[in-house]
């Protein structure tokens, strides 16, 4: 085991011990609000079916929202980034729309779209769209002139310029936008589920907090944390694959 991993393991054990000490052993904290580690572990096992269903439901929403955002934001960002006139024309619109926190769209989306699934996919899409779109534009703008010039002298077609030059050239910016999009879409997912869902990770936490069942709330939070960690790890893998050409 590497020294770093050993340090991390030790830290993890210390936190668990502190938790155990402050709840089970010393009774320092209110047992209504602060469950014991073993209690939470038992609930994780007990509710595993609900958790699996919730994760699948949440992933479904997340998948469609993020996929739509990726399919629209990157091609649009490449075209806008490449076309100076278009970029300047839409700049005021992006300056107004971009900074609006997508969370404020939730009640409205629920009102205008017929199903909860559609409204949450829409919210996640909005949240994931902007960071990707803005970063794709920035990535095209940051592309070295020499690279674009040499593509032009080779005589690449417009389509090839977008796909083979601008897309990979903007990729370092795109993946950092994608990381923001992923985190943001997870926040929006759980927020939307807390408001209007009957299943899902956000729903689980909200539902049991309404019954003051805080041990389950803590179990739900731990599951959400683990899911986010998994997603980010997979995203890191994807990033290093996409940018494998960088030193």
């Amino acid at each position: 085991m590497s020294p770093t991993n050993r340090d991390r393991l030790l830290l993890c054990i210390a936190v668990l011990l502190l938790w155990q000490l402050s709840t089970a052993w010393s009774k320092l904290l209110d047992p209504q609000l602060f469950p014991q580690p073993l209690q939470v572990l038992k609930l994780l096992a007990e509710d595993r079916e609900v958790f699996v269903k919730s994760i699948l439901s949440s992933f479904n929403l997340l998948f469609w929202g993020c996929t739509l955002a990726t399919l629209l934001a990157i091609p649009l960002g490449l075209i806008v980034g490449w076309n100076r006139r278009l970029r300047l024309a839409i700049e005021p619109a992006t300056n107004v729309l971009g900074p609006i926190p997508p969370i404020v769209y939730i009640p409205y989306a629920i009102a205008i779209l017929p199903t909860f699934t559609q409204s949450s996919v829409f919210i996640i899409f909005i949240g994931a769209f902007w960071p990707l779109f803005m970063n794709t534009i920035a990535g095209v703008e940051a592309l070295e002139k020499g690279i674009v010039d040499s593509a032009r002298t080779i005589g690449v077609s417009k389509k090839s310029m977008l796909i083979n030059i601008l897309l990979p050239g903007a990729m370092p910016h795109i993946v950092s936008g994608g990381a923001i999009s992923l985190v943001l879409s997870f926040i929006l997912l759980t927020a939307a589920e807390m408001i209007g869902a009957t299943i899902g990770l956000g729903w689980y936490v909200k539902y049991f907090s309404d019954f003051a069942d805080y041990p389950r709330v803590v179990a739900g939070i731990i599951v959400i944390g683990a899911v986010v960690l998994l997603l980010m790890t997979l995203y890191q893998r994807l990033t290093s694959y996409l940018l494998r050409w960088r030193k």
Binding site: I154, G155, P168
Partner: peptide, 26 residues
């Protein structure tokens, strides 16, 4: 055909792919 002073290869393509790309695009 132009040979630039610097940075004219596409960094996301291998040496071979850079040449293949030029052959195909032309």
């Amino acid at each position: 055909a132009v040979v630039f002073q610097d940075y004219s290869l596409f960094p996301w393509m291998t040496a071979l792919d850079n040449i293949i790309f030029a052959l195909q695009e032309s």
